[in-house]
Amino acid sequence: MNRNDLLSGDELSVSKALTVVESDRVAARSLIGSLPEREYYVIGITGSSGAGKSTLVNWLSVSFSDASRTAVLAIDPSSPFKGGAFLGDRIRMNRASRSGKILIRSMASRGMVGGLSPSVFDAVELLGRCGYHYIIVETVGVGQAETDIVNLSDVVVLVLAPGIGDEIQMMKAGIMEIGDIYTVNKMDIHGADQLANRIRSVLDLADVKREIVKTNSLTGTNVDRLYQLLIGELNRREKSGKIEESRQRRREIAELNTAFSALKEAHSRGVKLEAIMECINRLREDG
């Protein structure tokens, strides 16, 4: 991988770099470190499986790519047995894929149940430094531990749909709180209006102000509205300094992940866990 190719966002080089990011954390950090920082935005897309996240990303990413360089990271779960994975999000992203303007990369969660694998943090940083301005990350699906997507993203879209039937569960699990913008997809299906109203009343009750947009990800209806809302939200956050906070948080988590893998590596080379803990305790005492 030639550094200039990476800087200019040459797809083949970036693609190979992403493989490095996924397979070798140490090499990944040095590769990322060799590239200058750039400004980029991470848009997290989460929601239950079957709500239409991928079909929505299929349209949404095209809107973003009209404005600036866009990449999509689509995460699917790894199988717990031998660690294989079935990565099928591309099936629903033909439109984005055929636009010729969007880099789509499928990633397996690699053992991180319901969350994001550490390499996703590196992957977005790499893509950002390669000149991708908008990076859309589609999660596995809503799980209890979906705070990761909040830590990763500058803005999170929670996708819901009528007839999936677990929005009550989601409210209970506190997942409803992670959305910055709510999308009720499959707006043509009976029950979409009620679902939107229910979300509205739950949000009102909690005194939370959020936009709710109804979309049809099969025909693309209202996706542009969602795009406009996202751009507006990103601008607002940029001005209020919130984006800088998210960047800071993302960086910290990435560093933490690095520290953790360094510890793990040290441990595997025979450094005793007690010694590691002692170090940490000493640091804590020193303040």
């Binding site: 079957g50 099936i91 033909n94 025909t219 693309g220």
Partner: peptide, 9 residues
């Protein structure tokens, strides 16, 4: 008007 179907695999 109708949109296109993508398989649910």
């Amino acid at each position: 008007v109708f949109g296109e179907y993508t398989e649910s695999v």
